[in-house]
Design a protein around this nucleic acid. Structure first.
Lengths: 203, 203
DNA sequence: GTCTATAAGAGGATAGAC
DNA sequence: GTCTATCCTCTTATAGAC
């Protein structure tokens, strides 16, 4: 833990404020519709100042994605430290965290297939490292849950992994919230149910 | 059935070619990343000619969405005409059609929450009519399937409806296809399974 | 590092000849 | 209705003063 000068602290604080704003705007409108002018205006600094912190719009978005990935990894580590939980419980817990984060407007959306953002992310060491660590950890839980008989063994682990990842951009949450007549927790419960138990009746 | 002049036929044929191209490009890159120049180039006409057929980029996309909605309604009508099928079978069939269509690159993506496209679609009578007819029909199937005991009764019908609609833009299909080692039908089967049976083991 | 001002370019839409 | 050429706005990014 290095001590930071006042200057360094304010620098970090500003970058944090920028990343928070970007995260929110990415969640609201996505990468293409988010403009750098808008980010600068909401943070309350000039656009040129933004570019002193981040060299491009893609880098801005990448920082937001990396930060969110870091939060996810924190959750994963916390869950891994609780031996009373089974693999399926851990998978459900991280999925629930993902849904709550999206509903809170703090989950930056995944990039479209062919965007410049996608290329920037693939080139970003931090992002790719985080993504791989996350995938490995969830993958281990998935295999364990399958061998526990708690998860459908007929599904390949990658299909399960992608299905859980996809909850981060599930439009169903937004649709149900737009209706306005349900609480966030109720919505999360329903989506958790469709995700793990499916639409069809059980039993 | 009115007879059409040669001029009218070529006009219609050209518009069909345009809409087909737009559908494919919308599926590939989405509304924001699709450019009108690109559409014109792929159809093989000048951009100004495009604007004689459709007054705006939004109208172009709306036409593609309306056409796709029409195809979905055709499927729905065909399924409704088969009395041997239960409501749950019909729901599964239309979901499977949706997945296949997306995998074939012919499902235009849903608009983001705050786009100009969304407003244009809401203002489009044809689109909204189709959407409502489709929702009503699927809604009836859902209620029926719940009363048959084939669909989870704890879920509100709208949650089921949105979950099925969302299969049209499920990124899991693309992820699995990008892996390259699975057939399209295999991928569809897995996603059908996660959608209706869930990730958790049954029994 | 922050600002104002501006370059550079993409992309939606249109003018006007044929 | 189709074309070429152009307009104009929006947006990313940078120059240069302080």
């Amino acid at each position: 833990m290095t001590r930071l000068s006042f200057r360094q602290k304010t620098h970090l604080a500003r970058e944090e404020a920028i990343v928070d704003t970007v995260k929110r705007l990415l969640a609201e409108k996505g990468f293409d519709l988010m403009t750098v002018d808008e980010v600068a205006a909401e943070v309350g600094i000039a656009k040129a100042s933004l570019y002193k912190h981040f060299p491009s719009k893609e880098a801005l978005a990448a920082a937001a994605m990396v930060q969110t990935m870091g939060l996810a990894l924190e959750q994963v580590r916390a869950l891994d430290a609780r031996p009373e939980l089974g693999a399926i419980d851990r998978l459900k817990a991280i999925t629930r965290w993902t849904l709550r984060t999206q509903l809170a407007g703090q989950m930056p959306t995944l990039p479209a297939e062919n965007s410049t953002l996608r290329n920037a992310l693939i080139a970003d060491r931090d992002y790719m490292d985080g993504l791989m660590t996350l995938s490995d950890q969830l993958g281990a839980w998935i295999v364990q849950a399958q061998s526990d008989g708690a998860l459908n063994r007929a599904l390949p682990p990658e299909a399960v992994l992608y299905t859980i990842f996809a909850r981060a951009c599930d439009p169903v949450l937004g649709f149900l919230k737009a209706g306005g007549s349900h609480s966030d927790e109720q919505i999360v419960d329903w989506v958790m149910s469709t995700c793990f138990d499916g639409l069809a009746a059980r039993g």
